[in-house]
Nucleic acid binder design. Structure first.
Length: 739
DNA sequence: CAGCTGTATCTTTTT
DNA sequence: GATACAGCTG
């Protein structure tokens, strides 16, 4: 083990050896934090003779978990199946599978993703008299998720005064939604975090059991934990305080998802005896890249503060390219890739193209394909979110958990079997009266007077089909089950024959890919001597992240969002779309905290680069349907001029540029904050009775205004067409005119 | 009452 | 530029 410690620098070594008590490791980008965590676990086992079953390590993605496990196994020289490593969600799911009965769930509970949450919410919202149109189910899902991430119950929300009209309904929606998904034997992503805490609070002996099991707890990316995750960890370690968290406040980029940067900022207040280690030596990036990244992030106020340094060569300056439009920016990226290949002998996999929003990926995709450049996209339309895959998974979910009526309703009439919404509603009503689950009600459909025998026969046929698969699921291997399912239900055939050839081929090959994925999972699981079940597989795929499905060994240029890039590194990185409105992204309401999070996002992106960093922006960009003019991001003004090399600006002008930058930057910050208010100012141009012009409907008069800002709904009576239309301001493109 | 067709809706980041 | 939903038709 001594030789292992020699592979670490001094701070890393101290952090590894401080095994007892609370430890906070402030690890800058590229400072070797995964390495330190891995060594720490190996050290615990090797030097302190800690049984791996007593260690829990929480990572941000499954990919990071897998990598860390491999590293530790390499260090200690054997396979460690007893060691718990995983994301918060997968660790919590694992605990809940063991303890679910205490909370009124059965072991085979289903995990609902956002799409299924929304489906469940739509049903609930339908029962309530909420001023519809004003609040979309997606909005409600978002808000509910935030509430649950703060570990709040419906009754907590009833106290305190509501922030707006929707808030009045939230406790009721929350309570009904929760009852509904319990009936479905389902948990959503947020429940996975909440329920273990609830479990620990209601059953102290269970809390004790896990606190005793996990004598050493490690948490990676601590800056991105939310309140529920914080509580979970706190309860787990309350006895022994052997907690080691690693994080970097400058890389906190999930505030919008409820992550609380204060968890890391206040760690030493929560654990007053905490030992703090600062890892400031960067082993990843060349000097100039690091200096540029430092210069940007230093503008943030909400930080503990550290100064990264490196022993690596200074390297090249950061390249900046100003394109006329987004097409030219794309062409520039293609040129960079060619140049890096031919003059610097790099391969595709050395390069990454990063952007703020997934929508920006399409234009790069097209260009790379045309230029025969291999690429992989992380995120965007995810494999497991494709319709054909979700359909098959819904069948599997129903077979594993017949209580799951959200999945049932998804597939009851797919492929078409003549069972429509009205029939389902009747059965649902019957199920409520009889107090049975929807699936069982289908087996007793003959008792429902309102359903004709002919329709009843179809329903029973579906019921029997699923029943037979429930029987088969214990006899067949997961792969056999899935492939039999695809052919017996007619799904495979449906996709083979319907649609045009191109679409059909891609859908069928996706289904084949799913078979392969099931097979691979089963094999992997069997290696550890545990027979894999469909239920295990479903859990695995519901908790996958985008990055988890990314194969870094493929020789391809990687395209992904700045968020997805966290934790990764590439020799060459291109950050695109560096304009006001894109990075930082323009929202309706802007505040300083959000601007700082955007700045951290760029910092994360810049520090991914090892040897060469390219920044680019476009003066005009196609957004929605029209072309938008934009100016360079204010963050560009924060990078010292001597670290930038720009093909478009003459070097002699550097001094003048230097002078103008700080005032330019100030103006941009102002405009960023004013943009939110300007929509309110703009509201004033729309009043009831105001004549307006619309590109498709012609002239009209405003009849009614609802809501405010970009989401304002405007009802217009169009005189030319003699029709009334309800339009959303943001998309309608209405122009006020003189009458 | 199921199933198709056209129109409205919407793009922030993700477990 | 895709998807969801409403409204129409058989």
């Amino acid at each position: 083990m001594k030789s292992i410690l020699e592979n670490l620098n001094e701070v890393q070594r101290e952090a590894v050896q401080q095994t007892e008590g609370p430890v906070l490791i402030l690890a800058g980008a590229g400072s070797g934090k995964t390495r330190t965590l891995s060594y720490r676990v190996a050290y615990l086992m090797d030097s302190n003779k800690v049984d791996p079953a007593h260690i829990l390590a929480v990572t941000f993605t499954n990919k990071a978990a897998r990598e860390m496990r491999n590293r530790i196994e390499a260090l200690v020289g054997n396979r460690l199946s007893a060691l718990w490593i995983g994301t918060f969600h997968s660790i919590c799911a694992r605990i809940l599978r063991i303890e679910s009965e205490h909370l009124g769930y059965s072991k085979n509970f289903t995990i609902y993703d956002v799409d299924e949450q929304v489906r469940a919410l739509k049903k609930i919202i339908g029962l309530l008299s909420i001023p519809q149109q004003l609040y979309s189910p997606k909005m409600i899902q978002n808000r509910l998720s935030r509430i649950k991430n703060q570990f709040l119950y419906p009754e907590d929300r009833e106290q305190g005064k509501p922030a707006d009209e929707l808030d009045i309904y939230m406790p009721d929606i929350y309570r009904r939604y929760q009852n509904y998904i319990i009936e479905n034997n389902a948990l959503d992503f947020d429940d996975l975090l909440m329920k273990p805490i609830e479990l620990f609070e209601r059953f102290p002996e269970i809390r004790k059991k896990y606190a005793n099991k996990f004598k050493y707890v490690l948490v990676d990316e601590y800056q991105d934990t939310n309140h529920a995750q914080y509580l979970f960890i706190k309860k787990l370690v309350s006895g022994h305080h052997n907690i080691c968290v690693v994080g970097d406040e400058d890389q906190s980029i999930y505030g919008w998802r409820g992550a609380d940067i204060n968890n890391i900022l206040n760690f030493s207040r929560d654990f007053p005896d905490a030992k703090i280690f600062k890892m400031e030596e960067n082993y990843r990036s060349n000097g100039k890249i690091l200096a540029a990244a430092n210069a940007v992030v230093e503008n943030n106020k909400a930080r503990i503060g550290k100064k990264l340094w490196t022993n690596k060569p200074a390297g090249d300056k950061v390249s900046l390219f100003c394109a006329v439009d987004d097409r030219e920016e794309t062409k520039h990226i293609v040129d960079i890739i060619h140049d890096q290949m031919f003059t610097h002998k790099r391969s595709f996999k050395d390069m990454a193209v990063l952007y703020r929003t997934n929508a920006q990926s399409r234009i790069f995709e097209d260009a790379l394909r045309k230029n025969a450049i291999n690429y992989t996209i992380v995120g965007g339309v995810k494999f497991f979110e494709r319709k054909e895959i979700k359909d098959l998974l819904a069948y599997l979910k129903l077979i594993v958990n017949p209580h799951d009526s959200v999945s049932l309703k998804r597939i009851v009439n797919f492929p078409l079997r003549g069972i429509g919404e009205i029939t389902v509603n009747k059965i649902e009503k019957f199920a409520e009266i009889e107090n049975i689950i929807l699936f069982e009600a289908m087996g007793r459909v003959d008792e429902i007077a309102a359903i004709s025998p002919a329709m009843g026969a179809r329903v029973v046929e579906f019921y029997k089909l699923i029943k037979s698969f429930i029987g088969l699921s214990s006899e067949m291997s997961p792969v056999e089950l899935v492939s039999t399912l695809a052919s017996e239900t007619g799904i495979l055939n449906h996709y083979k024959t319907e649609y045009d050839q191109y679409e059909s081929e891609s859908r069928v090959s996706n289904i084949r890919e799913l078979f392969r994925s099931v097979e691979e999972f089963t094999e992997e699981k069997n290696k550890d001597g545990k027979p894999a079940t469909i239920s295990d597989y479903l859990e695995e795929v519901s908790l996958l992240t985008d990055v988890d499905t990314w194969n870094s060994n493929n020789n391809a240029v990687t395209l992904m969002t700045l968020h997805s890039a966290k934790g990764l590194e590439f020799p060459v990185v291109c950050i695109t779309g560096m304009e006001m409105g894109v990075l930082p992204l323009q929202r309706n309401t802007a505040d300083m905290e959000e601007l700082e999070e955007e700045r951290r996002l760029l910092y994360v992106g810049m520090t991914r680069a090892q040897e060469k960093l390219y920044l680019s922006y476009a003066k005009t960009r196609k957004k929605f349907n029209n072309v938008v003019d934009s100016v360079a991001s204010l963050f560009i003004d924060e990078i010292p001029v001597d670290l930038i090399e720009s093909g478009t600006e003459a070097l002699s002008q550097r001094e003048t540029i230097k002078k103008n930058r700080s005032s330019a930057r100030r103006k941009k910050i102002q405009s960023y904050f004013q943009a939110g208010q300007s929509s309110q100012e703009a509201d004033s141009e729309f009043k009831i009775g105001q004549p307006v012009y619309h590109a498709t409907f012609g002239k009209g008069k405003i009849k009614c205004l609802e809501g405010s800002g970009d989401k304002m709904k405007i009802t217009v009576f169009f005189t030319d067409e003699n029709i009334e239309k309800k339009l959303i301001k943001k998309y309608a493109n209405l122009t006020p005119i003189e009458s």
